[in-house]
Design a protein around this nucleic acid. Structure first.
Lengths: 269, 269
DNA sequence: TTGCTCCTCACGTCACGTGAGGTGGC
DNA sequence: TTGCTCCTCACGTCACGTGAGGTGGC
């Protein structure tokens, strides 16, 4: 039975508003089965009701419209379910971020203010195996985790002797311009020139103001703020990327509160 | 010490991007402590670092900028914490919505398709005590819960004898235009003219196509879709609001899967 | 002096909603 | 025939990001 429904009727049946249906037509997410050439009137068929319901559910899950299109166009159920799972795990990630943000806020508002101990340190140049890439700020956390995983995997199998804690270098542009070069590295005496995405790197010598950050990396901006304030007050800030050394991290313990990260701000004395 | 930081330095210290800081200036969320009149250069003071960090955390929690302003302007800690709690419970609500949407999607994709049983019924006019208001679609669920709570509270204390299940009326504009009249009511023989937000109402006689929806109200659009399809196939749809009767709901059991709602579509035979 | 940093302004993004002004269908 | 439904088009929302084009500070 080919009952042609007006946009109003289709709206009542699917609980998608008329404006939304017109929008979905415009972006080619859900096209009316028929459009009258003279009047421009849209007509929908009853077959389209289940599709509309599915779209509603995907959108309830904040799935972007292009992702919904991909799901609807999936050639088989396995592909479709893979796309959905991918979105659900993105949601799960966001949820974890939000939960972390809640405790982070609580710590800021009610937690004790940890006294800041700043050490001024001169480090020599060291050799390391590193992954270095141009990264968007928004992707930094994901990139950091992936790159460190890869770095640790390739190092683990080959019996390299590490000559210090793992570290990271973060160009200022990452923070000021939302995009910049990020580096993760593990120090070793004689790194191979190339190993997967990793390359040999000389981590340059520097004078650094160093403070230890305790706890989750998501809270690191507090230590950055305190250390940056300290450096600004003393007026000896210098150019160059900030540096982090991961003294205690996920590889050592699952207890995030026990993590320790050295935040190193380049200075000129 | 009044160290004046350029926007770039302040960005590095707070991890807010330069573009973001300019935006926050424009919307008066975070104004530089000094702006050079000739050059337009913004200068921030070190005192502003903690404020910037707090703003970052509120925004990490998706708090709207106006809400962040209100939090920062709160005259005392109690007010501030109340504003924050209000936002966190909004977040909590969203989270529950999302979780419901996930299982709703799973049910749509993998669940069995319940056979639809449609009953055509002629109901006489009945008297009722009702709350009726113009509501935005987005607020409908919250409005419905609140209004039902109020209705049940005022009814409970006064020994009215109910003459049928509680119900709701939903104007079509609610679904097509995102805004329309919604009504919740409890049937009784002699309702008082006014009681709080509630008024006496005659629920008009109607011919209805009725299907029972089982489970969460969030999934009700599936039954709406099936029933609307049925009505369209038979070509006997009529004007007038859709009607719901809550046969089994939160007042009866906490087991959502046991809930039963009659969805009633106006028809003309 | 160079080039890096800062500036403004206009427009883009995402998924729609708003509202004006007008026409078509029953 | 009335008025209700449908149409398009331009603009608004939210929190920024992009990019052009240009100037200032060390």
């Amino acid at each position: 039975m080919q009952t042609a429904l007006t946009i109003g009727d289709f709206s009542r049946i699917t609980h998608l508003s008329v404006k939304t249906l017109r929008h979905y037509h415009r972006v080619e997410l859900l096209e009316p089965s028929e459009v009258n050439e003279d009047t421009g009137y849209r007509y929908y068929s009853l077959d389209q009701v289940p599709t509309a319901q599915a779209i509603r559910r995907y959108r309830d899950l904040s799935m972007p419209i292009d992702a919904v299109k991909a799901v609807l166009a999936a050639p088989d159920v396995a592909t479709r379910d893979r796309l959905i799972s991918a979105h659900l795990s993105r949601l799960q990630n966001q949820l974890e971020q939000t939960q972390a943000a809640v405790s982070s806020l609580q710590a800021l508002l009610h937690g004790p203010v940890e006294p800041l101990t700043v050490e001024v340190r001169t480090v020599p140049a060291t050799t390391a195996l590193a992954i270095r890439e141009m990264v968007d700020r928004a992707d930094l956390v994901g990139w950091w985790e992936q790159s460190f995983d890869e770095l640790r995997r390739v190092v683990a199998g080959r019996g390299f002797e590490l000559t210090g804690p793992a570290g990271g270098l973060f160009d200022n542009e990452l923070f000021t311009d939302e995009r910049g070069e990020a580096t993760v590295f593990v120090s070793m005496a004689s790194p191979p020139a190339v190993l997967g995405r990793a390359r040999a790197l000389v981590v340059s010598a520097a004078e650094l103001a160093v403070a230890v950050h305790h706890g989750s990396h998501q809270d690191a901006d507090r230590t950055y703020g305190a250390l940056g304030t300290y450096v600004a007050e003393h007026g000896f800030g210098a150019d160059g990327p900030v540096r982090e050394y991961y003294l205690v991290d996920a590889a050592d313990t699952l207890d995030v509160t026990a993590w320790q990260t050295e935040i190193c701000w380049p200075i000129a004395t």
